[in-house]
């Protein structure tokens, strides 16, 4: 083995992503031994299905976090788009006398709604200098309120048109459409992360805002774009959830933003930005899903999962802050300033 290869392997083994991978494997082994309902092909299909929404939105959220921003409104965005999509498909726009719409049109409108929420987030944060947390929190409540108000708090379960569930449930050559869509999105975001101007600029903004500014990057525009992108992805996730379960529910996606946040953080993107990988977020999303699924299989109550989520969230942050302070200590030790 050449030394450079050895070095590469050593680098990989000591990286947080590898540790994450080990945790993932360990969880799988544990659940497989603990319950016989876990280690099955069908169950894995389920796990991936459960993680798809986190993966889709996680793509945008990872980019946001790289720039030291975050979006707490994705769950509400998902709920709003979910219910509006279903509403448009089932009822149209009654007070304008518009009949139920074709799914494609409804989908298009809903994606615009998702983008609009992202746009508002972006405007508040870049133009009015809101802290991302406050702005997106406000949108979290607004989005949820709008979703509930649209249908007066009721879910839409009747009158669902044919083909509504197709994209979320049908398969192409035995592969669910859902997987194909997620695969497509994830691959394109990986490309964006590694090969695109946007990816480089996102990293630059998070790692060194001054350097980004002096390099002529329009920081505000990048951040605005990322919020809109995340909004669009949340809108897409809204459509897919509606299709997968074949009904519209204004209460869906409660706490979804936290799942996304946890997946991104677990995936090695620190809150302070400057780095991060889509790949890491995907493993993070799988861990969240495996944990949920495995605990379910073991008959652990859903509420314990909430507790675990909290612990994981805090754990992930402490892990990052430890890594960071260690890195910084190394830097300080290396300094030779007299």
């Amino acid at each position: 083995m050449s030394t450079s290869m050895k070095k590469n392997i050593k680098q990989f083994i000591t990286s947080p992503t590898f540790l994450l991978f080990l945790i993932f494997i360990a969880l799988n082994v544990y659940f497989s031994l603990a319950t016989n309902r876990f280690f099955r092909v069908n169950n894995y299909v389920n796990i991936i299905k459960q993680s798809t929404m986190i993966m889709i939105v996680g793509c945008g959220a990872t980019f946001l976090m790289m720039t030291e921003s975050l979006d707490l409104s994705v769950g509400s965005n998902l709920a709003l788009t979910n219910i509006v999509y279903t509403f448009l498909a089932v009822f149209g726009i009654p007070f304008l006398g518009i009949a139920p719409m074709p799914l494609l049109l409804a989908g298009g409108i809903v994606i615009l709604i998702g983008a609009a929420i992202g746009l508002i987030n972006g405007i508040l944060i870049t133009r009015f200098k809101f802290e991302p947390f406050i702005a997106t929190l406000a949108l979290l409540y607004i989005g949820r309120g709008l979703a509930l108000a649209t249908v007066d708090g009721q879910s839409i379960r009747t009158g669902i048109p044919d083909g509504f569930g197709s994209i979320g449930n049908d398969e192409l050559f035995g592969i669910p459409y859902l997987f194909i869509i997620v695969f497509f999105i994830v691959v394109s975001f990986m490309l964006l992360e590694r090969k695109s101007v946007l990816g480089k600029h996102a990293v630059a903004i998070g790692a060194n805002r001054n350097a980004a500014f002096f390099s002529g990057i329009n920081v505000d525009r990048v951040i605005m774009g990322l919020y809109i992108m995340t909004g669009v992805l949340a809108g897409l996730a809204g459509i897919l959830t509606a299709s997968r379960f074949q009904f519209g529910d204004p209460r869906t996606g409660v706490g979804f933003e936290f799942n996304v946040l946890i997946a991104v953080l677990l995936g090695g993107t620190p809150l302070s930005g400057g780095k991060g990988t889509i790949f890491g977020t995907m493993i993070g999303a799988l861990i969240v899903a495996v944990l949920g699924n495995g605990l379910n299989a073991m008959d652990v109550v859903r509420f314990w999962q909430t507790v675990f989520q909290g612990i994981i969230l805090i754990g992930a942050i402490i892990f990052h802050s430890q890594m960071k302070s260690r890195g910084r200590a190394k830097l300080l030790a290396a300094g030779t300033r007299g």
Binding site: I134, A138, I142, G143, G145, L146, A149, D152
Partner: peptide, 11 residues
């Protein structure tokens, strides 16, 4: 529900 929207706006 509309009030819930209002709360976000007020914030």
């Amino acid at each position: 529900f509309a009030q819930e929207v209002g709360r976000g706006v007020v914030l």
